[in-house]
Amino acid sequence: MIVDMPATSTSQVSKKLVQLREQGGVLALGRVLTLVVVTDDTTSTENAIESANAASRQHPCRVIVLVRGARQAAARLDAQIRVGGDAGASEVIVLRGYGPQASAEAGASMAVPMLLPDAPVVAWWPNTAPAVPAHDPVGQLTHRRITDAAAEKHPLRALEQRASNYVPGDSDLAWTRLTLWRALLAAALDQPPYEDVTSADVDGEADSPSTDLLAGWLASRLPVPVKRTKIGAAGGVHSVRLNRPSGPIELIRPDAKIGSLTQPGQPQRRVTLQRRSLSDCLSEELRRLEPDEVYAEALAGMARVRRGRVPSGSRR
């Protein structure tokens, strides 16, 4: 069910929510967190809501979407409440503010009465994020702040900003997209021969923040030189090579879909390594609400990564 409430106020929205609960039963009672989505008024807003709904199937939550409408307009708040089939396992409250109500301060204060009591609050900026998310008025309400460097206009600059402004509780989807890569690499090192890695090369698209983060992560975990190159032209992360005395472990994904893992003395193994869907990434983010220290170290590790055109082994 979708209830539209044009030119309304937050207290009316709150009232309507209580009324809907009384009519519909247990809405909002089993919810484990509040997800605040902050977007501009664009076509991608609906996309973000859909991903949040899909993620809510694992983490029943209340989704508050703060849409920043036109600044040059009269003050006005349009609200929309979606429950039941239109909202997955969540309930969605869209608050679209215009004029002064489109500001971050107003957005935060509109979200306050809608937050679930006693439950964690997560903020998500699907597009442009504030420079220091933790200092943003909405960010200050939350335990966890999710940004997406890859969705920004200047992905690498955004990532550098994240690194220099990191506050515990920050997270970025560029990091989430790496989980499977990291797991495969770690699993490869679980197997014999248990040799030390002597150096590592990470290659990927020039403005792929995930590639930089992956290199940063390796640099933070391994006390060896890590090099970041830009040979792969498209498709995010292209390849990772961990050099060891007996030969390198290589995980290569030439077509952004299927990866292949090669190790000395073993047949090449192929593995699906598709870019993960937004809802998939968001589900993973919502699973853990404590600060991600490994991510913080990966951000810090980026400073140790050397950049170059050719990998250190320079086979090409």
Partner: peptide, 8 residues
């Protein structure tokens, strides 16, 4: 975050 992937 990192899932345990079964070994070969």
């Amino acid at each position: 975050r990192m899932p345990r992937i079964a070994g070969p």
